[in-house]
Write a protein that binds this DNA or RNA. Structure first.
Lengths: 144, 144
DNA sequence: TCTATTTAAGATAAATTTGTCCGAAATAAG
DNA sequence: CTTATTTCGGACAAATTTATCTTAAATAGA
């Protein structure tokens, strides 16, 4: 469904958000541990998220990653996925046809559009805030 | 969403079904042309579908691939996808956690389960017969 | 200023997926 | 029986994704 990069990116962002809600900045090392992801690969993904303005990074001792508290409830799952995987998941035909739309559909077009619209609206309607809150109060988990 | 192998496999199976409904056997070469897929790679996928009993193959001159007419309306999209990609798409956590269920969910568990159940039931409820018929009457297309 | 720490960035490597090639096996037809 | 055709199977190659390593840049604190 999602790429590994996306899985790690989502988990990391949620973890950073929880810490940011408690006014704490977190290091790459801590993130990778708490999120159970490969350190160096996670670094790449966080760099990308930082370039896309979703998270902030700070170099040096006491450095690390954080998210502006005011932005946490404005960031959606869609923005995170889009920053990492681009919009390939959201566009394009289910069977890989270059040209496929309602006027010249592939055999699964209608059914596929339904599923994907469903996925899209889920991603748009899910805020980082609700994901982070669920983790913070112990309702959800990121490891194993 | 689907792997390339799956895309090619679905398209090929639909094409074979249409021909089989007209009592025609088709060669690998014709399939790859009509479905716009790499010949040798398509061969591998068809071999797998044949081993899974979804399509029949025949060697030698006049050989090729076909599907028993009586099976066409019993075969589902789910069976095709499952034969090619296994059940990795249908099981497993959205964020890659080894252990993730309602009792110890990841942050996107509920939302993800919803989407995937949606996908699953679409695949289960879509028959090869309806896909092949749509193509046969010119309502849908497989190329470009 | 110097040092230790942390992220940034680029090169490199491993793993997986996608794709090709070629000889073997089957088989229809002359 | 021989030949031409077609799928089968395995080895091989290219492309993409996943993952690592190393050096540079920033920066906090002594």
């Amino acid at each position: 469904m999602f790429s590994k990069a996306c899985e790690y990116g989502i988990k990391a962002t949620i973890y950073i958000a929880v810490k940011s809600m408690h006014q704490e900045r977190v290091s790459l090392k801590e993130i990778a541990e708490e999120v159970d992801s490969p350190v160096a690969f996670t670094a790449k993904i966080l760099q990308s998220l930082a370039r896309h303005g979703i998270i902030d990074s700070q170099k040096g001792p006491t450095g690390g990653f954080q998210i502006q508290e005011s932005k946490i409830d404005a960031i959606t799952l869609h923005q995170i996925v889009h920053a990492i995987d681009g919009d390939n998941i959201f566009n394009g035909c289910g069977l890989g046809l270059k040209q496929c739309d309602a006027s010249k559909p592939c055999p699964v077009h209608d059914k596929f559009v339904g599923i994907r619209d469903n996925l899209k609206s889920m991603l748009h309607n899910t805020s980082l805030y609700e994901l982070a809150t669920g983790l913070d109060i112990g309702l959800t988990h990121l490891k194993r």
